[in-house]
Structures are given as C-alpha cells and as structure tokens.
Design a protein around this nucleic acid. Structure first.
Lengths: 167, 167
DNA sequence: GTTAATGGGTCAGTATTATTGACTCATTGA
DNA sequence: TCAATGAGTCAATAATACTGACCCATTAAC
C-alpha cells in the first residue's frame, strides 16, 4: 500500500474507498430489500418483474404502457409477458385512454391492490426498523443521496408526483 | 371522537408514503447505478454477474468460493459459469488455500484489476457528482440507512473489512 | 382524405442469469 | 477409517431480458 509521501495519492485512495463502500452498500441493501418480498412472490408463482410492475402501476394509476416501459427501462416484449400474467390473473386492468383511445391505461384491480399491499408490508418490515434506527436526519440524507444518484429526469418526476393520474 | 382515529390513519398514510418513496428511490438509484457500467460490459461480452464477481473478489482478495457464494446469494451453478468465464479470460486467478488445500482462493489478475478499475470509474462518475451535490451530512445519513437496510451480519462484516484476506 | 406516425400487441428466436438435484473428487478432521 | 467439507461438474429448467420483424387501430399531419 502507498505510504503517505504523496498526499494527493492518499486523498485519492480515501475517496476511492468511499466509492467502493458505496458500491457495497448499494448491492447489499438492494439485495436484501428485494429479497424481503421474494418468498411471497414465489408462493404465487410470480417474480420480481411482476412486483415491479404492480408497484409502479399502483404508484401511477392510469399509467400508459409506454410510460411504464420508460420507468422499468425494459423492452415491450419483456413487459408483455409480465403484464399478460397480471391481466390474466385479474391483478391489473386496462382501459382505453380518454383523449387517446390507442392508449391502454393501467390500473390495479382490488385484488392487485391487495397483493401489492402484502408485498409492500414485507418491504416495510425491512425498511421500518432501518429508518427508525437511523433517525430522521439520516433518513433525509439517504433520500437526498438516492435522488442525486438516479437520473435527474426521473428524480424531477418524483418530486411532483404523489400519484399522477392518466394523461 | 374519531379525531384520534383519523389522526392515526393520517399518520399511517404519511408513513406509508415515505416507504413507497423509498421503494422508488431504491429501484431508480440501483437501476441507474448499475447501468453506468453496462455499456462497457456489453462491449466485452460480459454481464452484470461478471461485474459483481470482479467487484467482490477485488474487495476481498483471496476470498473462497463458498464465501463469494454467500455474498452474492446465488448457487454454485450460477457462479460456475461466471467464474469460468473470468478464469478463461485471465481476469481472475485461483490458488489453493494455505491452511486448507481444498479451498480455491480467488484474486484478480492484473488484467482483472484493470478491468475492475474501468468499471469502477464508470460508477464513480455517477456517484461522485451525486455525493458532492448532497454534502457530507447527507452522505453520512445515506451510509447509515443503507447499512441499516442490509442484513446485519453482512453489515457487521463491512465495518471491520477494508479488505479481508483469505482464511 | 390519403398518408405517416404513434400506441400497443404479437411472433419467433436467442442470451443471461438463475434454479434444482445428483454426482465426483480431493482434502480435512473426528 | 470414514463422515464432512470445499469445489467442480452434469443435465434439465425457469425467469428475465433481448432483437427484429410484423400487424392493427387510432391519431395527426399534409
């Protein structure tokens, strides 16, 4: 390991260690956060992709397929299977757009809402104690940094968006 | 009289919104964080699984296969393909354990280290500005919360572990 | 009002990452 | 000696994702 002859070098190493630890944190936190819902999903024969779709349809009732694709950053084909499953099981409903009838506005059915709540509870059980233990100031910092890491366009949309209804 | 009841309900809703926003943040931040390295990986015909292996071998030089499996939380078969690719390309090297010759201690070769650095730089380019913009206090909160979200056993290992050498 | 663009769906084929279960081999340790 | 462990491997399968090429209905532009 480099000695402290070179202060710049040492600063660089400290910085890099910070980033490497952040890489670790992002991997582990995401791994365990997603895992919280996995057992329930598996019982139902659903996967994480289904959960993501349920979550973002629940968060954005009346979202269009195109907008959902933009959030998930997957292709139409990838979503087709997942969405097909959810429609078939009656967890998600479609209706034509009001102003543009080509659109299929997506919403959760009652059953979909109920399932999403169950999945939500699992993840809440992991996040809740973590937030409580960390305190309000740390939580605020967490939110600030996470917002800064993600794409600014999506971050900007999150600001305004409690729920945004169909367009 | 239903006032306190309503208040509880309102508090519940506020709390839930906080958790739902956290779900959003984890998804988006992880999506964009991982994406930072993707183009480089694709040029090389490697995937994210290869990157994860490179990262954790780099972070834990001399790690055993079993320990790496424990970190990644995947099965031996899943790792076999990835590790096989990395060995074949000369990015990772194995050597028998000193005290237990059944072990295969994993290390990055010079080429592996170089590639990991390149991938690291991509992610640093995303995290760096985010950290700078957020400030030291927010960054500290981010670390606190992320540590609290992840499994406590792994979090505890991160505390002690700058790099931990083979056992 | 014909035409081009858009929103959505679908077909076929493929790649990556992951799984289970069984089995081998070398080495360690009781 | 013999069971347990660390690692590698076989075969089969599932989940998630991709590309590229289409089709249909509807909207928007000329």
């Amino acid at each position: 390991m480099p000695e402290s002859h070179d202060a710049d070098r040492a600063t660089q190493d400290v910085q890099d260690l910070l980033f490497r630890q952040a890489q670790d944190l992002l991997f582990f936190a995401y791994r365990d956060f997603t895992h919280a819902a996995d057992t329930l999903l598996e019982e139902l024969g659903l996967g994480r992709a289904h959960h993501r779709a349920l979550h973002f349809i629940g968060r954005n009732p009346g979202i269009t397929v195109t907008d959902l694709l933009g959030i998930l950053r997957i292709t139409k084909q990838s979503l087709a299977r997942v969405l097909g499953d959810l429609l078939e099981r009656g967890l998600v409903a479609q209706e034509p757009g009001l102003t543009d009838r080509r659109q299929r506005l997506l919403t959760l059915t009652d059953a979909g809402t109920a399932l999403e709540h169950q999945l939500f509870d699992r993840q809440k059980a992991r996040l809740g104690p973590a937030f409580t233990a960390s305190g309000a100031a740390a939580l605020s910092g967490f939110q600030t940094v996470m917002r800064a890491i993600m794409d600014s366009a999506d971050a900007a949309r999150l600001e305004t968006n409690g729920t945004d209804d169909g367009r």
